[in-house]
């Protein structure tokens, strides 16, 4: 068996990180949201980003431009409230393939996901 060591290089992140907290504060303009973000450990945030890209990406596209599911690009979410998006994440959309993620994702984590989707800056 031939091997080359792919561990030596990592795929370029699809989504780039800016000053995450600054963007978050801009988007929400609230101290409460900053608290939401702080309550989630960096490890968990990485897990959530991974789920967002890979598993949400199964239906919404790896680049979030949509598929069976709607596009989740920031430009498509400007009219949507972060709290409403969070409740869609948690409870799904009945009558569509969008499942309820409540068994796997906490409410404050869903809100954080909604906020970073709206900001368009998912971090890395």
């Amino acid at each position: 068996m031939k091997h080359w060591d792919l561990k030596v290089w990592t795929p370029k992140p699809v989504l780039k990180l800016g000053a995450f907290y600054a963007v978050l504060a801009l988007v929400t303009g609230s101290v409460a949201a900053a608290a939401v973000a702080k309550d989630i450990s960096p490890e968990r945030k990485n897990e959530l980003r991974y789920v967002l890209e890979q598993d949400c990406g199964s239906c919404h596209g790896l680049t979030l431009k949509g598929g069976l599911g709607s596009p989740l690009l920031a430009g498509k979410l400007t009219d949507r409230d972060a709290t409403d998006l969070a409740s869609i994440i948690l409870d799904g959309v009945p009558g569509t393939p969008m499942p309820p993620w409540r068994p796997l994702i906490q409410p404050h984590e869903a809100l954080w996901l909604a906020q970073i989707l709206k900001s368009g800056d998912l971090g890395q």
């Binding site: 080359w4 060591d5 792919l6 030596v8 290089w9 990592t10 795929p11 370029k12």
Partner: peptide, 11 residues
């Protein structure tokens, strides 16, 4: 991709 040159060579 952003890698170091040495690693590229190895691959």
């Amino acid at each position: 991709m952003s890698l170091t040159a040495g690693l590229v060579m190895g691959a």
